[in-house]
Design a protein around this nucleic acid. Sequence first.
DNA 1: TTGAAAGCGCTAACAT
DNA 2: ATGTTAGCGCTTTCAA
Lengths: 331, 331
Amino acid sequence: MSTIYEVAALAGVSPATVSRVFNGLSVSSEKIRLVRDAAEVLKFTPNRTARRLRNQSSELIALLIPDIENPFFTALARGVEDRAQQSGYSVVLCNTDDDPDKETNYLDIAVSENMAGIILAPASADGDLAHVVSRGRPMVAVDRSTGFDIDAVMVDNRAAGIAATNALFDAGYSRVACIAGPVGIETTEERSLGWRQVVTRRGNPAGHDDYLQHANYRVDGGRAAMRTLLDLPTPPDAVVTTNNLMGVGALQILSEAGITPPEFGVAVVGDLPFTTLLPDAITQVHLPARHLGTTAASMLMERIAGDTQPARTIVLRASVTQGATPVPTAR
Amino acid sequence: MSTIYEVAALAGVSPATVSRVFNGLSVSSEKIRLVRDAAEVLKFTPNRTARRLRNQSSELIALLIPDIENPFFTALARGVEDRAQQSGYSVVLCNTDDDPDKETNYLDIAVSENMAGIILAPASADGDLAHVVSRGRPMVAVDRSTGFDIDAVMVDNRAAGIAATNALFDAGYSRVACIAGPVGIETTEERSLGWRQVVTRRGNPAGHDDYLQHANYRVDGGRAAMRTLLDLPTPPDAVVTTNNLMGVGALQILSEAGITPPEFGVAVVGDLPFTTLLPDAITQVHLPARHLGTTAASMLMERIAGDTQPARTIVLRASVTQGATPVPTAR
DNA sequence: TTGAAAGCGCTAACAT
DNA sequence: ATGTTAGCGCTTTCAA
């Protein structure tokens, strides 16, 4: 672990010159060679920690996501990475596990590590961002919004919920349930609000509040909720799930019960990951996960570059709705 | 962005005392209160960069994985995280994208950022680890081995390939192909070697070198390879894929061709992620992804704690083979 | 163009 | 128990 001093000594120049060489400042080509050779011999790599302490910033951006095992977030991460690398920034990923404490911990780290910026997919609405914001670190929220006045990029969740639900009614289903995520999570609330809006207008039978199920955001949550729905006195004949993983869970339960769409209607907000056998009756409302990432990264890059315009929110449409949803046959 | 000096001034103590308070060293409760209050007022958080420059180390460990979109690696990451958090370490994830250059870049970062340790799922066999190793940073390899004398934790890939192939023959298939990953990647080589070993013994028809297909490690690779296999003059009646994602691709192509296992035998080394409709005829050789992660993290923690025993390699068995593979019916 | 020197914020001797 | 101070490795004025 050699330092610029050792390189300087070996090259017969001053530490400042070594620093200049490594930062591309003007140095006589004579000494450049000397320094490079010496650095080569000593296997010198500049110590980023020291550089950072000096510069108060690094070429690292932190990306905090709530669930690293959810393909939606990994796709988003890829987007962030692609964009960041273009600008010479490296991305470190932190998994907050939907836990506000872990989130706060990683935010602290990102700030006190002097990272160049932060992209945050917030675990909860009430994370402690004041801290970060007050320090003036560039930050952009993605997927879910925060109570703070910062840049954000999101999808039109309401519209996504509406599209999913409409697709089901259009296909001829009449008792459309909804498997939503945990209460209080914005994305889920909005999507299920979309569902409710359509259902109110197009008419589920009255008195079926139990058609709205809350579950955890993962596969097992979807499974539990779907089981509950099937056990209802008057089960629904179709379901909207407000994210991809719960969609997987719901489909698993249906499959285990010997029910295959379009016998039962299924629409999922999000993309079903790694599908092998997929009834083409399933509706998917594709979310632009990767695009969310690139957009957020672009915004962050602008801020890092010094852009000081007021905070913006960009809303991406969950535009692409796919899924040949034929009129149910076997009912 | 306040410093210990400001806190010290406000609290009427010395910077050293502030430092001591924040590091839990003995300080009179009187001054502890003073310092805490001052820190509160100033919203002081210790600057990790400075601390690190001073300590030459941090409580951060870097995990480098080749494909963040592959559930195998995200499961592994979860394992690492769980174990690391237990010891008070935070994990930052870096996606090398199977690109040696990116890998080297992130390794450089990890080292020059003075991270406490590194867990590396190597992109290629010939990454430039000399650098890291020579600096004496604790490092453990996971999933694939390196040419270097460092700790490693892996699965018994040969055995996994053998188990998958045997399962297919046992079920009554007789022309068993193999979709392997890129040439030169250890895990894939080993697994396909396992396949070859069984096939040689239990007897594919002679002259079918084309039953071994190399593909990229992802879904589209599996798709392409499966298509090629089906187009062969004498197509196989079963296939082993050497990872999870290629398995997904193969199943997609079969499904699109209207072929459903067990009409055609499929065994995948790895776990099919997020399956919705899964013919129970499929054999899966489950890889202990998460366990790989926890084990690697444990080893790393030991090294960080100062353990200096010679490098160890731990081999985990891909023990659990699942999959009721009935004798094919419709042939 | 080059060097000397200060200082980024913190911790750990050392001294009191 | 507490304060003083040197220094981690780097960059960047300021002079020369």
